[in-house]
Write a protein that binds this DNA or RNA. Structure first.
Length: 437
RNA sequence: GGAGAGGUCGCAUAGUGGCCUAGUGCGCACGCUUGGAAAGCGUGUAAACCUGCAAGGGUUUCAGGGGUUCGAAUCCCCUCCUCUCCGCCA
């Protein structure tokens, strides 16, 4: 959600943002509605005020006087109902339009049409070289019986998989290592709900929009009627949805900000429209595990950007501990989504793809989500008129698996087909050094 | 899944069609009192929106939505949530 006063003050900034983010929206049409609404409201409020005055008088009156006022109020009430219906229609559209409006990206965000406009900012680490013919993670995983994709497909359809034995243990180890990494820095762990209401998806900016068909609806067959029923819940595609919504409709205290939350959860994505894309292996799957960083902080861009660096660094530290080469890219306007105002991706080197693959996504959303979720904080230093402000929110992957297993398995493979367990993960695997011996 | 009871201001409660501009208690803030504190006394105690330079004025909000009515916290319908009992169950 955007600030309407800001929209009215600088409509051109929003028109440019929409254009840069490849959104087709009609801001001028919105202003027509906005005016209509503003004209209707005083009319309705005036009628209601009259009604309130009459309501006090009526019980004191008797006979003709009373009948006359009742008749007058009947007419007023009928008119009022018409105006209210009109306002409701206008306001519904007025609100729906607002949900489609983008936030305005920061000035330093590269303008671009799609991912080809993204800009590499830095790289870290040496790409691995092998003195034998390296295999990809699927071949290695199946030979070691730690990844089973055919059986995943048998049981749950394409893009599903089993991690098995040391494969499952390796994923657990990476999750636990990452959780401990954040815990040591004072982050609060969450094991959040995996299902959430439409409002939470709306509040975090995923609904309404194209993302909607990426999300699974929780439903079931009604035994009596045999028809498919929806439970009006959706499976989260990221714990950002339920962790961020944790404080929905709350007023936080300034001195308890920033809130640093780490959500560890399974994530579910339909991956609609990606048929034929990344079909091989564990890159693009319907279900994965993720430790997500979510921060709610004060509405202060400078401070927020420091936190942005902090959460990106937290993720980098995990990759560095795993000794996985990666690069950071500035995501351009056309690739960042309507809610974000600044975004960087971390891409980790994946030998079998002979390229970097996206493993992390770091986003700064300004007050976009907090407005939709109605999360505010008390600012005692502010003027009394504006003591309650909307928070700013940020989020970044800390680690997501099995995608991260691709570089881990491929980079740590040995000539004999075994996999060396990264040193930092060994304590999480009972000291095990090699998978496949 | 079945039966029942509920959802009112930060919390607890009162409120069965106009006296509700939602009372009372607690909490909180400020003031008086005091050497200081407690107690006591007094005052205040939300959000959103409209209007206005401002002071102010107005509207809405009693879980949410719809209805009846000149008028709804209160009556009717639907949805959500909570609790109790039964059933099932990790």
């Amino acid at each position: 959600m955007i600030d309407l006063n800001d929209l009215r003050a600088r409509p051109d900034a929003y028109k440019k943002a929409a254009k840069d983010k490849n959104l087709t929206i009609d801001i001028d049409a919105f202003f027509v509605l906005d005016e209509k609404r503003k004209a209707l409201i005083p009319r309705i409020e005036e009628a209601r005020a009259k009604q309130n005055v009459a309501s006090k008088k009526i019980p004191q009156l008797e006979g003709e006087e009373k009948a006359a006022l009742l008749a007058e109020m009947k007419t007023l009430s009928d008119d009022l109902k018409k105006s209210e219906a009109e306002l409701k229609a206008v306001e519904t559209e007025w609100k729906n339009m607002q949900f489609t409006f983008p936030s305005v990206p920061l000035d330093n965000v590269p303008v671009g049409k799609d991912e080809s406009g993204n800009v590499e900012v830095m790289t870290w680490g040496e790409k691995p070289t092998f003195d034998f013919e390296p295999k990809d993670h699927v071949e290695l995983g199946e030979a070691l019986d730690i990844i089973d994709i055919p059986r995943g497909a048998k049981v749950s359809g394409a893009r599903n998989y089993y991690l098995k034995g040391d494969g499952a243990r390796l994923q657990k180890a990476i999750m636990n290592f990452t959780i401990d990494h954040l815990h040591a820095k004072g982050w609060t762990m969450f094991s959040p709900p995996l299902m959430a209401t439409y409002e939470c998806f709306m509040g975090t900016g995923f609904f309404p929009g194209a993302d909607e068909n990426q999300i699974y609806v929780v439903g079931g067959k009604d035994e009596k009627t045999g028809t498919l029923e929806s439970d009006n819940l959706h499976l989260i595609g990221t714990s950002e949805v339920t962790v961020c919504s944790y404080h929905k409709d709350e007023i936080l205290k300034q001195d308890e900000l920033p809130k640093r939350y780490a959500g560890h959860s399974a994530c579910f994505r339909r991956e609609a429209g990606t048929y034929g894309k990344d079909t091989k292996g564990l890159y693009r799957v319907h279900q994965f595990e993720k430790v997500e960083q979510v921060v709610l902080c004060e509405a202060n861009e400078e401070e927020s950007l420091k936190i942005f660096e902090e959460i990106r660094k937290n993720a980098e530290e995990v990759l560095q501990a795993l000794k996985l080469p990666y690069r950071i890219i500035d995501v351009c306007t056309g690739d960042m989504g309507k809610s974000k105002i600044y975004m960087q991706d971390i891409e980790t080197w994946m030998p079998s793809r002979d390229s970097y693959g996206e493993t992390h996504s770091c986003s700064y959303l300004g007050d976009f989500q907090a407005r939709r979720l109605n999360i505010r904080y008390d600012d005692p230093s502010a003027d009394s008129g504006q003591a309650k402000k909307f928070c700013h929110t940020l989020n970044n992957t800390c680690v997501a698996s099995p995608r991260i297993l691709i570089p881990v398995i491929e980079q740590y493979q040995n000539a004999d087909g075994t996999i060396t367990v990264p040193e930092v993960l060994r304590p999480y695997m009972g000291g095990q050094e090699i998978i496949g011996q």
